[in-house]
């Protein structure tokens, strides 16, 4: 999958995140975005997801420009799967209903098709026993797995994961990371914002450092961690790997 950003500017209420970001990258399975908080990782992900519009500049994914009108953006969002940190699921719906909602309302599957597709994905993540439960009755790890199932069930062209484990305890984190690692072998490219440095090293093809409104370094995982080229990367790795 190919992503190209050209002269992207984005600010929130006077707070400038990107001034003029250029970034071109091509990868097969997983791109991990790492970096300090407030450096722009999540903003970049939200731009790619079509949840935010850049103030100026253009983004192309596999050569296609992300549109800037609302209906075009919605069509773009329908083609991909997004998982946020937490509270992805709708609390008034069961796990099964959460997965069925986009299938029926957005992708126009019949009730029967949506039901069997949703169950198939719940089964894949060992969640079939929890199909009838509401999010409040599930553990944090189960919730994130349902969210991943919902994102995958619509057969997206790629997946965007925004710190999917940052609200979980270590055990649940492992449970969710196992699922993500398994996805690597599936056909969907993944863009992952993460604080789990070890995981990024283990699973990502490419790792990009997003810091200070720029992407100073983007290289294959082993290179990124073993021979970082950029001083910012070295400083960042020193800090996060200190303990």
């Amino acid at each position: 999958m190919k992503i190209s950003l050209r002269r992207i500017a984005k600010s929130y209420g006077g707070q400038c995140v990107f001034r003029s970001l250029d970034f071109n990258v091509e990868f097969e399975h997983t791109l991990a975005l790492v970096g300090p908080s407030g450096g722009g990782k999540s903003t970049l992900l939200r731009l790619l997801a079509g949840l935010e519009l850049p103030d100026s500049g253009e983004i192309r994914i596999d050569g296609d420009l992300i549109p800037s009108d609302e209906s075009g953006l919605r069509a773009h969002r329908q083609k991909l799967g997004v998982v946020f940190q937490a509270y992805n699921l709708f609390p008034h719906l069961t796990a099964l209903q959460n997965i069925r909602l986009p299938l029926e309302q957005v992708h126009r599957l019949s009730a029967q098709e949506a039901d069997s597709r949703a169950k198939q994905f719940l089964a894949r993540f060992q969640l079939l026993n929890h199909a009838g439960k509401q999010p409040a009755q599930l553990s944090g790890g189960q919730r994130q797995r349902v969210a991943i199932a919902r994102a995958l069930a619509v057969d997206p062209t790629f997946l965007l994961l925004d710190e999917p484990t940052s609200a979980l305890d270590p055990e649940m984190t492992a449970e969710v990371l196992d699922v993500i690692a398994e996805l690597r072998t599936s056909e969907k490219p993944i863009i992952l914002v993460t604080h789990e440095i070890g995981f990024a090293r283990h699973t990502a093809d490419l790792v990009a450092l997003v810091a200070d409104g720029g992407i100073p370094e983007c290289s294959p995982a082993t290179e990124f961690f073993d021979q970082p080229q950029h001083a910012t990367t070295r400083r960042f790795l020193q800090r996060v790997l200190k303990y």
Binding site: R74, R77, F84, Y87, N88, H92, P102, Q105, V106, V154
Partner: peptide, 30 residues
Amino acid sequence: VGRSQWDSARAIGLTPTQTYRFVVFPQVLR
């Protein structure tokens, strides 16, 4: 209704009307 709910609804591609109908109003009603 939290921002994350609106985000999730947009991310799965719901229109604003669908977001109110399937996500926001059921929670508001309860």
